[in-house]
Design a binder for these strands. Structure first.
Length: 287
DNA sequence: CCCACGACCTGTGGGC
DNA sequence: TGCCCACAGGTCGTGG
């Protein structure tokens, strides 16, 4: 599922169940996800209390009262299901169209508030680690990470700085978490379309006016998606229509062959492959 | 520095 | 129905 809006949606869904809760029981059903769990993973978590649940880019961070921070990444197919008391506080987030396959239930957390949270991840591109809280910022995952796109440190200036003189295409630069942290394939396609920037041209040649539009487009598309509860592509459907429906608002992603939605544009959405990943765009209005 | 590409892993959907 | 291939939201590493 997860780019920034989806991870933020998950964070908001889990927060009522985890914030301030003590982990009374933790089970790891295997020794690794993408990476091996750290030494003593289960023991270090069991009995600890979660101070808060934060997000940085696509990572979830749960600082614990013991000085460690539980760092979690959903990879491509990571998903949390929640059962028990705290589920009621945020209906919708965990109402999936299809039940999770129990064979992919890799980690289970139970809390002192009578809640069970299960992490499922069929492809196991997700991962979890425990990092000393004061060392999180310096950790390689975070040290070179760019600004949060929805925060004040990100704006046209950042894009102008990062795009200057670069031959790489804008998609590559936006997917690079050092430029700005939290975008993935979908929202990059959407932002470039909104800003009318061609994914085929070198980044260094994009005019400043367009980079200003791009910064606005990035913020807008992410904010709208967060507001919609993220996007649900294949395995997940929001309940009650209030969560996880942003996929209906995609202008180009997965819309190959459809008419370009730009006002007055007669183009058709194309799909091409760049760096092994699909790019959806309109070659008429993205120049 | 810049690409293109493959690797990691499993599931799903389309075409035949 | 079954089979095979292409493809999937992310990240990391290699080699030219």
């Amino acid at each position: 599922m997860p780019e920034l809006p989806e991870v933020e949606t998950v964070r908001r869904g889990l927060e009522p169940a985890l914030k301030g809760a003590r982990l009374t029981r933790v089970v790891a059903n295997r020794a690794d996800l993408r990476f091996a769990f750290p030494e003593g993973f289960v023991q270090r978590l069991t009995g600890a209390s979660v101070i808060e649940l934060k997000r940085r880019a696509k990572y979830l961070l749960a600082p614990l009262d013991r000085g460690d921070t539980l760092v979690m990444h959903l990879g491509m197919t990571g998903r949390f299901d929640i059962e028990g008391a705290d589920k009621q506080e945020r209906p919708g987030v965990f109402h999936y169209a299809a039940p999770a396959n129990p064979k992919h239930a890799h980690v289970v957390f139970e809390t002192d508030r009578g809640c069970r949270i299960t992490f499922y991840d069929p492809r196991r591109f997700g991962f979890m680690d425990l990092i000393a809280t004061e060392a999180v910022e310096a950790h390689p995952w975070f040290a070179k990470m760019g600004p949060e796109p929805l925060g004040p440190e990100f704006g046209a200036g950042r894009l102008i700085q990062m795009f200057k003189g670069r031959k790489q295409g804008p998609k590559t630069l936006l997917l690079d978490q050092r430029t700005v942290a939290g975008l993935g394939n979908i929202y990059v396609c959407e932002a470039l379309h909104r800003a009318h920037i061609s994914p085929l041209k070198p980044s260094g040649g994009v005019k400043k006016a367009k980079l200003k539009a791009l910064a606005v487009a990035v913020k807008e598309v992410l904010a709208e998606a967060v507001e919609a509860g993220g996007s649900s592509i294949s395995d997940y459907a929001g309940a009650g229509g209030e969560l996880g429906y942003f996929q209906h608002s995609f202008r180009v992603y997965d819309r190959e062959g459809e008419a370009c939605p730009t006002k007055g544009c007669k183009g058709t959405i194309e799909r091409i492959v760049q760096a092994g990943r699909s790019t959806f765009f309109c070659r008429v209005c993205q120049t």
